[in-house]
């Protein structure tokens, strides 16, 4: 068992493009257990924060520190699923097998794990099909299966259902809950209040590049303290 990479410490994180600050000093410590939902309007910096935590981008200020790991050395224990599912031009099974091969999983166990995650994401019947001909919802489930197969300690999800219909959204949300039940920390962004209520155990509310509010989900939705969060929940568009 690899040692835990949690807690994740985000220290005064800043991301600037030219003169524009897209993230303005975010500090937080994120634990291993709860489903963390990063909520906020478009342009708040949610996706950016996720990419910085995952290590796809380097911050222009501040640090992302994973427990006991040097900078950039924690990505092996992480996985990410993107808003638009990226599928390789191969069969469904080969997509999952590829991710495992990269992580150095040998052939025998690889096949077993491919079968297992495809079964748990409802894609067994499509295993030999080209991944590119799947529907949007199926492609996103494949992305989840591929991420899940490597048994990451944390799974980042960037608006995973933004392009999906309600039925496909539900299927994806069920898989997310199962992945968490198997012991993977979930950190996801959404601008969908319903989804935040369904999946959120802890809410980080972002607005205009700042962490405005951070609370357990029930308390957040019962009574947001900041005017920005209150306006967002009520659906008043003040930005």
């Amino acid at each position: 068992m690899t040692p835990s990479i949690f807690p994740l410490r985000i220290e005064n994180l800043v991301y600037e493009v030219g003169e524009r600050a897209l993230l303005r000093g975010i500090t937080a410590e994120i634990g291993a257990t709860q489903r963390t939902v990063i909520l906020g309007p478009n342009g708040a910096g949610k996706s950016l924060l996720l990419r910085l935590c995952h290590g796809l981008l380097a911050p222009t200020g501040g640090r992302v520190v994973w427990q006991g790991r040097k900078e950039g050395a924690a990505i092996r224990d992480q996985a990410m699923v993107f808003q638009r599912p990226v599928t390789l031009r191969r069969s469904v099974a080969a997509n999952v097998a590829y991710a495992l091969a990269i992580r150095g999983v040998s052939r025998g166990p690889r096949r077993l794990r491919v079968d297992e995650v495809l079964a748990r994401t409802g894609l067994t019947a499509k295993a030999r099909v080209s991944a590119r001909v799947l529907s949007g919802g199926e492609q996103q489930r494949l992305a989840l299966a591929r991420a899940w197969a490597s048994r990451p300690q944390v799974l980042f999800l960037d608006e995973p259902t933004a392009n999906l219909d309600p039925a496909a959204t539900r299927a994806v949300e069920e898989v997310i809950l199962e992945i968490q039940a198997s012991g993977t920390k979930i950190v996801m962004t959404t601008h969908d209040l319903g989804q935040a209520r369904r999946l959120g155990e802890e809410i980080l509310f972002l607005c205009d590049g700042r962490l405005v509010e951070r609370k357990p989900a029930d308390r957040f939705f019962a009574g947001p303290e900041s005017p920005e969060a209150a306006a967002f929940i009520e659906g008043r568009l003040t930005w």
């Binding site: 992480q78 993107f82 990226v86 390789l88 031009r89 990269i102």
Partner: peptide, 26 residues
Amino acid sequence: EEYGELLVSLGVHRARAIATLLWDGR
């Protein structure tokens, strides 16, 4: 453009990425 973030996220090294992209762009 399409695969970059995924490959970095999966921890693919550049040399491996070349082989992957040549195959996927076959």
